[in-house]
């Protein structure tokens, strides 16, 4: 297979065509053919980096992940909305960093995206090699509150790993980090 052939994958073309048709809002030969042409051109002009996807979705933990995430989005939206309009001095926050448990970059990214939408945190930086997530926590002033933020983030990550990682038990084993620490020395 040629390099161009590898880039233009069938699922990619179909997805981009669907997006194109939906954006036009009508099924007609013109939008479908136009969508196919645009999809192929996009895939040729903007090749994506190759990502090794080694995910194993599990239905029940995935449902837990999605439902809990939607609930968190609602809770955090009203929380921040209240902080914005409540009377009194403006709210402040702190910057903190947290070591994640898993090393899959795709799942780390998913965790970071979801953490950015759940209560109290905005992601600033993610260092995949060090598994270090830097984030800003709103309304946190004491170390104890910071610990609570840490448990929330690690809980979010655990839900992502349980839903999608092939070996969540191995990733979440608390002894893993320490073993690696001695290897680094």
């Amino acid at each position: 297979m040629t390099a161009a052939g590898r880039r233009v994958s069938l699922p990619g073309v179909l997805w981009l065509t669907l997006v194109w048709v939906l954006l036009w809002g009508s099924f007609s030969p013109l939008t479908i053919v136009g969508g196919l042409v645009v999809a192929v051109l996009i895939l040729l002009a903007f090749p994506l980096p190759r990502v090794t996807i080694a995910l194993r979705p599990r239905p029940w933990p995935l449902a837990v992940l999605v439902l809990r995430f939607l609930l968190d989005v609602v809770v955090s939206s009203f929380h921040v909305a209240w902080l914005a309009v409540r009377p009194g001095p403006p709210v402040r926050g702190v910057v903190l960093d947290i070591e994640l448990a898993g090393d899959d970059e795709l799942l780390q990214t998913m965790t970071a995206e979801m953490v950015a939408l759940v209560p109290g945190t905005v992601v600033i930086d993610l260092d995949p090699g060090e598994r270090l997530l830097t984030l800003h926590a709103l309304g946190v002033t004491t170390p104890r509150q910071a610990q609570q933020v840490r448990w929330r983030v690690l809980g979010q990550e655990a839900r992502v790993l349980r839903a999608l990682h092939p070996d969540p038990a191995g990733q979440l084993d608390p002894r893993r980090g320490r073993d690696e620490g001695t290897v680094d020395e």
Partner: peptide, 28 residues
């Protein structure tokens, strides 16, 4: 919620707290 997000953008004191207002109530 969008109104609360824009009030937050005006009232919050610095960049990162404003990002909270710009992401969460805005998305919902």
């Amino acid at each position: 919620l969008c109104l609360a997000a824009s009030i937050g953008l005006l009232r919050f004191p610095d960049l990162l707290t404003r990002m909270h207002a710009g992401t969460k109530p805005q998305v919902l």
